[in-house]
Structure formats: structure tokens, C-alpha cells
Amino acid sequence: MSAPTAQAVSQAIGLGKHVNGPAGGLTILAGLDLEIGAGEAVAILGASGSGKSTLLGLLAGLDDATAGEVWLCGQRIADLDEDGRAELRSGRVGFVFQNFQLLPTLTARENILLPLELTGTAGAVRRADEALERVGLTARAGHYPRQLSGGEQQRVAIARAYAPRPAVLFADEPTGNLDQVTGEHIIDLLLDLRRDAGAALVLVTHDLRLAERCDRRLAMENGRLK
């Protein structure tokens, strides 16, 4: 097992995930090595069930690997408990989900404020408003998610992900629930913001056109990267 690379924001070494179900054991990931450098945009492509989302969860420290190790922002995930991992993610890791995952009880601005308040960031409201402006939704600041279209919801989610200025952003099928035109806009926004913030982007998708706009493309098949 090799030591992590100093410049990598996220690295997987010999990563494996095996689950036991009623129908017997199932290997989702096996012997996977991956390194994502600072500011790099990496697309992980693959068919449904190929293990893309599992890999994303492991890289972000949301799940435990059954083999190998994961490093995130210079920390070995296995060395940290649940709260330690949360603290590690706090302010350093952003997420964009396929289902947007905005808190339905909070307005657009309050959704963006949430991670800033969790990290106790000074000038949180100003930062949230800047993020809203950056995604072009200043006028929608007081709207609740249910009052926004799918594209608008995803823009709020992107603003929420970038507002704390993370080192790495994980995006799980960010255009999966959107039409083609809206999807294009979202991708533009994701990549522009990544460039501005200098953050790494790990993008899970099965959309080839979207993958082509990233620095590097990795294909997943049967739990392995090709």
C-alpha cells in the first residue's frame, strides 16, 4: 500500500466494498486506486449499478470501506470517527445531489446559510447572498424549494456547495433530474464556480457530454476503474 500523494485532495488506495445480503455476498468495489489533485475535475462514468455512487460516498467519508483506505484533505478517513469525519467535511467538502436535497423548510438563502452557520463562518449572510448572486437567484432568495423549478433548485444546491469555498466538491448525477438545456446550464455553472474557487470536482455521471468537459474521465465497470 503506497503513501498518499501530498497534492491530492482525495485519494483511494486499494479500495474495496463488499456487502452481505440475503442472497449472499456482493462485491461492489474491488482493489480500486484513485487520486484527485487540487483543482482537478474528474468525471466517473459508468452504467447504473457499476458502483459510482458507492465510490463517491467512500471518497467523501460518508461510508466505510471493507478494504483499502481513503484519504481526504490529507486525513486518513479510517482514523476518524463519525464526528471527526463530519468535522473534516465541514467547510472543506461540498456536495451536489441528483435530487438537490434542499431542506424544504428553509428558503433558498437559508439553505445556503446552513453550511456556513454549521462552520460558524463570519459574514455568513453576505457570503450566502454573494453565492446566490453568482448563481443568478438573488430575486429568489426568500423562496422555498417547492416554489423553485428543478434547475433553480439545483442552482441553489450549487451555491450552497460553493459558499463555504470547499477544497473538493462531490457531485452525484447533478443533471440526472433535469432536461438537456437546463442540464447544460448547470454544468457551465459547476465548472465556472470550480474554476473560480480552485476546488477539485468529482463528478459521477453517465452523461458522456458532461464527462467530456472534465479534466479527466474514469469509467467504472464491475467495481473497477478503467
Partner: peptide, 16 residues
Amino acid sequence: TDAVAVMRCLGAPRHL
């Protein structure tokens, strides 16, 4: 549940 999962993702520790 969903809101909590998102907050955990965003780095909210359990004790908080």
C-alpha cells in the same frame, strides 16, 4: 431524516 442526512454531509457533527 433527509434534512439531517444533508446536514451530516455538510459537516454537522452528531453532538452539534
